[in-house]
């Protein structure tokens, strides 16, 4: 049986760890609230741009390379992960999903490329010797649009320059504080612009449809990327919060077990001492 001192030091260290995980849980909770708020702020912008894009794309016969499917020679995967770990299965879920998809779909490295967001994703692809087109690390916890505008622009540019023919985006969709779902969507070409539930207005276009699309579509694609990033961030904080809560609970349980063990050991040692004294006294009689 472990000595009293050993057990005591384990209890202390577990309690210290618990303090840290608890603090991290609370930090993540507040970050999650903010991230949720950010995602909410973004909704009116997204809805509006979607509405306008839908009415142009469905209401006219204007065409644009970003709306048309072409032969797919190279596919890009934009994968949103976090910079730091300790977020439970947040990163591994998404990376497993992407890795599986890539293995199933592509035979050689020339057929695809990856654009990881976050250090964990970058390290994952680099370690497996997979092509990495751009990498984005150090995204703020509460990103604003200016932070990622460049990245989004570069990514959309890859498509415009025909370096890639398809762009898929993988991220964790924030369902609730305890559920996040790996979501994969095809971003480019924009083939599935839904106009459900929206009243389509027929607009006048100044100067004409083509030039509007020229401005509008890249902006639309960029905002889709930004939306996914906000969603991913909210999920990240939620996942970290849940993971830290689980860690705190486990530590609590462990401290309970150890305290019980400690008390047993203490009692045993007292009993032993008494026995020794009693038997010592009996020997003197």
């Amino acid at each position: 049986m472990a000595s009293l001192r050993d057990i005591k030091s384990r209890i202390t260290s577990t309690k210290k760890t618990m303090q840290i995980t608890k603090a991290m849980e609370m930090v993540s909770a507040s970050k999650m609230n903010k991230a949720e708020q950010n995602a909410k702020n973004f909704v009116p912008y997204m809805n509006k741009i979607q509405e306008v894009v839908a009415s142009i794309a469905n209401g006219t016969d204007a065409s644009h390379p970003m709306l048309e499917e072409r032969e797919v020679k190279r596919t890009a995967y934009l994968v949103i992960t976090s910079d730091r770990g300790l977020a439970g299965a947040y990163n591994s879920n998404i990376l497993r999903n992407v890795y599986q998809t890539i293995q199933d779909r592509h035979n050689s490295k020339d057929e695809y490329t990856t654009i990881p967001v976050g250090r964990i994703g970058r390290d994952f692809f680099k370690k497996r010797d997979m092509p990495v087109e751009h990498e984005i690390t150090g995204v703020a916890d509460q990103p604003n649009f200016a932070d990622i505008a460049d990245i989004a622009k570069q990514t959309v540019q890859l498509y415009t320059d025909e370096k890639i023919d398809e762009l898929h985006i993988y991220y964790n969709h924030y369902v609730s504080a305890i559920t996040q779902e790996v979501t994969a969507t095809q971003l480019l070409p924009l083939t599935n612009i839904s106009s459900e539930g929206q009243s389509l207005t027929s607009y006048e276009y100044e100067p004409n449809e083509e030039e509007i699309l020229e401005v509008l579509l890249p902006q639309y694609a960029e905002s889709l990327i930004y939306g996914a990033l906000l969603d991913g961030k909210a999920s990240e904080h939620a996942a970290r919060m849940t993971a830290m809560k689980a860690a705190t609970d486990n530590a609590d349980e462990l401290v309970g077990d150890l305290t019980l063990k400690y008390n047993r050991a203490r009692q045993a040692s007292i009993t032993q001492e008494i026995t020794e004294i009693v038997s010592g006294a009996a020997a003197l009689e």
């Binding site: 306008v52 006048e204 100044e206 509008l216």
Partner: peptide
């Protein structure tokens, strides 16, 4: 394509 002034009752329009 130039300066644009909008008053109430304008027809639906989209412009960059």
């Amino acid at each position: 394509s130039g300066e644009l002034g909008i008053l109430p009752g304008h027809i639906p329009l989209v412009a960059p």
